[in-house]
Simulated assay, not measured.
Amino acid sequence: MEAVRKVASLWRLHVLVLAFTIAAELVGIVKIPIGIGAILLLPLLYSFVLGLLANPNITALGRKFIGSDEVKAATPLIVIAIMPFIAKFGTTIGPAIDKIISAGPALLAQEIGNLGTIILAFPIAVLVLRMGREAIGATFSIAREPNIAIIADRYTLKSKEGAGVLGVYVVGTLAGTFIFAVMASVLATAGILDVRALAMACGVGSGSMMAACTGALTNAVPSMEDEIVALAGASNLLTYATGLYVGLFIALPMVNWAYRILRGSEDEGASGTDGAAKPATNKQEG
């Protein structure tokens, strides 16, 4: 009964979610032609924007309707909301197993792309933005839950590395779905890359980003919907299975090595070396 009363007390949250869903579905898919293709605006994106506007930590308007209790209740619901979508993979991966096996080498090789954050983002973070060891946590991965666990275990989330990974996690949660949906729709309609390659690229280890990415691809190429969902699901599963080990044994040592090369002895109070956290850096004043 206590759980029922608690859910009932969050009626504002439920009403807003229902209203946002109805509004987004009524708008439907909007196609914006651009030079090389088209941007597909999906209902998920409208819900995302409306959710931002209702966030009490972002807008004053949101604080009039949503309180801290609703925010705490909404945070873990993304996992529950994405479960039906994840379950659908089980029904699509099986029938398409032959196509997945035929794409095997490509599917495995694309996991190397997880190291792209180090190659692209790390030099900018250190040399341009002049970040300290926050850059290690921010750029050794795309900063989803398994990657946060690695940093928490090696350095703790109170360290500079912890601040970096949490910062990227928040930004990815807020903007990742929008960016993925726009990129997928543009590339799919431009015809630059094979749709199957784009489908595999959707599986980066984030359920919400994958949902947005596959949604854009299936709307751009509806005839390949089952194959897109199957390849994206298999890729996402592989990322979860291998991403933790790639991050722990390859990416994190690599980014620590690169940091020493670029910064030399200028370590700005490093919280550890190659995962060995120093207790002194984890103390909090007050």
Rank of each mutant, 00 (worst) to 15 (best):
L45W: 09
D267V: 15
A3Y: 11
A38Q: 12
T21H: 11
R12W: 03
A190W: 09
S102V: 12
V246E: 04
P84M: 01
M209Q: 15
T214H: 04
N55W: 12
A60C: 13
E25N: 07
I136A: 07
D274R: 12
I250F: 13
G247N: 06
I80D: 02
V165I: 15
G62R: 05
G176C: 14
L187E: 07
L40G: 01
E2G: 01
E161A: 00
R260L: 15
L40R: 00
G269E: 10
F180I: 00
A212Y: 04
K99A: 12
P146H: 03
S159E: 06
F89M: 07
G90P: 05
D153Y: 05
L231M: 08
A220D: 05
P76Q: 01
L231R: 00
I97G: 06
S141G: 12
T214A: 08
L238D: 13
K6G: 15
L166F: 01
G264R: 10
G264Y: 13
A121H: 00
G51E: 03
A163K: 11
V255D: 08
L52V: 09
V195Q: 06
I119Q: 00
E70R: 06
R196K: 13
G67H: 03
A181Q: 13
E2S: 08
A73Q: 04
G215Y: 01
I142Y: 11
L41H: 00
F89A: 07
R260M: 15
K72C: 13
A3P: 10
I228F: 04
A19F: 15
P253F: 04
F249P: 08
G176K: 11
A277Q: 05
I39L: 04
V79A: 15
V17G: 02
Y46F: 15
L52P: 08
V229R: 07
G215H: 03
G172P: 11
F48W: 09
M183S: 10
G137N: 04
A175V: 14
G247S: 08
F249L: 14
M210Y: 08
I36N: 06
G172M: 10
T281F: 14
A258T: 09
S9L: 11
R260N: 12
L52C: 10
I93G: 00
L174D: 05
G35N: 05
M83H: 04
I148G: 08
V4H: 01
A109M: 10
I78N: 08
G162H: 01
N147F: 11
L127A: 05
L42K: 02
E25G: 02
E266Y: 04
T92K: 13
G35W: 06
V71K: 01
A184Y: 00
K283F: 07
P76R: 00
M254K: 08
G62M: 08
P253Y: 06
L193A: 09
G35I: 03
I101D: 02
F89K: 00
L238H: 14
M131G: 14
K88M: 14
I82E: 05
V7M: 13
T189P: 02
A199M: 03
L107C: 04
T273S: 09
A38T: 11
P123K: 00
A175K: 00
P43A: 07
V182S: 10
L40N: 00
P222G: 02
E70I: 11
V229T: 11
L61A: 14
I142F: 13
L52I: 10
I101Y: 09
G247W: 10
A201H: 09
S47E: 14
A81L: 12
Y169A: 08
